[in-house]
Amino acid sequence: MQRLGDFKLPAFFNYPPYFTLQPVRETREKQVQLWKELILDYCRTQKIFVIGLEEEFPLFSNLVIERSLSNEAREAFLSALVSEGRAEWLDKGHRKCLILWHRIQDWADLILSFVKENGLEDSVMTVEEIRSGIESRGTELQGMDRTVLMRALKVLENKGKLAIFKGTSADDEGVKFSI
């Protein structure tokens, strides 16, 4: 089986027609389904949050069988993820896509349990600390995309679980938990 680093690629990745958008509806549905699963899986294991349509992305070409996805196909697969709430376009032109292998709500839940496990219920942390502090090391929050993190924090703020405030340094914000 072919691998990308430590990621095991599925068999369909080596079957050339999967790199061409299929014209027949049922065949295409199956194709889109397989690609959606592959993209989510890959992003989750590699901690990739943003895919640029026109940029190099390991899944978009297969050198072994000399095939790569057309822009149309890339957009079709990502759009399918968007319509399921597993991705969001970051721009109107659909050139950059945010991949949500956890939905925003799930990320919010992860933050809550992280806070509880570390006894931080009344503490203050910076946003940066949540992503890269000692406490988050080895958890899913480590290295988390800032945009996604901010969105999840906003969800929690709206529920009254925390307050976001401007920190002393201009480039970082603070979070006061009150769970």
């Binding site: 061409t20 065949t27 000399e66 790569s68």
Partner: peptide, 23 residues
């Protein structure tokens, strides 16, 4: 054959010729 779902098209080859694959 394509409509019946027995074939898949592949337009990605260098020579530009459409291939019909049969899983």
């Amino acid at each position: 054959l394509l409509d019946d779902g027995l074939a898949m098209i592949d337009d990605g080859h260098r020579d530009g010729k459409r291939r019909y694959w049969f899983p």
